[in-house]
Amino acid sequence: MQIEHVKNNQSVFGWLRTKWVQDPLFSTGIAFLIMVISQTLVLGFDYDSFGSWFDSWVNNWINLLRNNAGVGIIALGMTLVIMTGGIDLSVGSTLVATGAVGMLLLDTSAKGILGLLGLSGVPAFIVTILLVILLGYLLGLLIGVTITKGNVPPFIATLGAMMIFRSVTQHFMQGHNPTVPMEFLKISSFNIGGYMIMPIVYWAIIIYILYYMSKRTVFGRQIIAVGSNERSARLSGVNVEKVKVRVYALMGVLVSIAAILQVSRIGSMDFANAGRGIEMDAIAAAVVGGTSMSGGRGFIMGTVFGMLIIAVMNNLLNLFGVPPFLREAFKGFIVICAVLLQRKEKLS
């Protein structure tokens, strides 16, 4: 009986080890659960009643999710880009460029573009959103064409775009301080049940759309094929260049949506610093969620868990009073560990 008990324990631990190494969603989910428990314990239970504790717990999570919804949306696009074997370092600068255009269109001063055209209110908001998304699409398309037609490595193409987009935006926004109509802020601040959860709702909708696309559409399967083996995908009839261009264009659209959320949530944008480092957060979320840096494998839900792990980690480090500069070190450590686990899986 004792020998059988030992064998059962070994089989359970063996199964857990196999699942942890070979199933990124399992390991990421367990890590996220540990982070949730840790945050709950750190917040404490010193409240008058369970109801007040629960309200505080819920508010904490809503604030955390709302503050990270924009980065979470960008991380989803980064997942698809990495799955093709590429990278996009320009997302922070694209965020600034599209956000700046949106603010210029909506500006309530005499310099407001749509105001000069006689547009205001909801029609102006709709036109602004559509034009900002179109701009994001065109910037992503430009990067995709540069990579495919110009045969420029994604790292170099997006690094160049990162410097160009931000510097051009800063140049043209010198002396401009656009003000956004208060009504536009309702896009992110509209209350549902007493909670401002609209950014979370938008994030959830995009998660569902991209999850469905990655699992149920031809385009989703083509992304995996291109990242797994580009030559085999080409021989199978996949238009590799078209797939890559579409992925980077989609990345641009997602970044522009994040820009709209940021402008509508804060009402302003620091064109010199906004979005700096956001590409690292997006890459970290994708890698922690099980996306392979060599391409061919990625998980939309894994990236969601990865984003939440990083968000909770940042929150915990803030609660513990860890200096801001050291928080990046923790994030880097997690990313390295995630890549080491991926390597271990390939060797096993």
Rank of each mutant, 00 (worst) to 15 (best):
I3T: 11
I3K: 10
N9R: 11
N9M: 15
W20R: 00
W20Q: 01
Q22D: 13
P24A: 11
T28L: 04
T28M: 05
I30S: 00
I30F: 09
L33T: 12
L33A: 15
S38L: 15
T40A: 12
D48T: 09
S49N: 12
F50W: 10
G51R: 03
G51M: 03
S52K: 13
D55G: 05
W57S: 08
N59Q: 12
W61A: 04
A69R: 00
V71F: 09
I74D: 05
T79S: 08
L80I: 10
L80M: 14
I87C: 08
S90W: 07
S93L: 04
T98D: 03
T98H: 03
G99L: 05
G99S: 09
G102L: 00
L106A: 04
S109F: 14
S109T: 14
S109Q: 08
K111T: 13
K111D: 15
G112S: 09
L116C: 05
L117Y: 11
G121D: 06
V122H: 02
F125D: 04
T128V: 07
L130W: 08
V132L: 07
I133P: 01
L135Q: 02
G140N: 01
L141E: 08
T146G: 08
T146V: 14
G150L: 11
P153L: 08
I156H: 06
I156R: 01
L159F: 13
L159V: 09
F165K: 00
V168N: 01
H171T: 13
F172C: 07
G175H: 08
G175V: 08
N177K: 14
N177D: 15
N177M: 14
P181A: 08
P181E: 05
F184V: 10
L185T: 13
L185I: 09
S189F: 11
G193N: 07
M196A: 15
P199L: 05
I200R: 00
I200F: 05
V201A: 02
Y202D: 03
W203K: 00
I205L: 14
I205Q: 04
Y208E: 07
L210A: 04
Y211Q: 07
M213C: 12
M213D: 01
R216Y: 11
T217G: 06
G220R: 01
R221N: 14
I224Q: 07
G227P: 10
S228D: 12
N229I: 10
E230Q: 13
E230F: 00
M251R: 00
V253Q: 01
S256G: 02
R265W: 11
D270L: 02
F271S: 00
A272L: 13
A274Y: 02
R276V: 15
M280Q: 05
A285R: 00
G289T: 02
M293L: 15
G295H: 08
M301L: 15
M301F: 15
T303H: 02
G306K: 01
N315R: 00
N315F: 08
L316T: 03
L316Q: 04
L317A: 05
L319D: 12
P323F: 09
P324D: 10
F325H: 12
F325Y: 15
R327A: 06
E328C: 00
K331S: 03
G332Q: 06
G332D: 09
I334H: 01
V335P: 04
V335C: 07
Q342H: 09
R343I: 11
K344N: 05
E345C: 02
K346Q: 11
S348F: 14
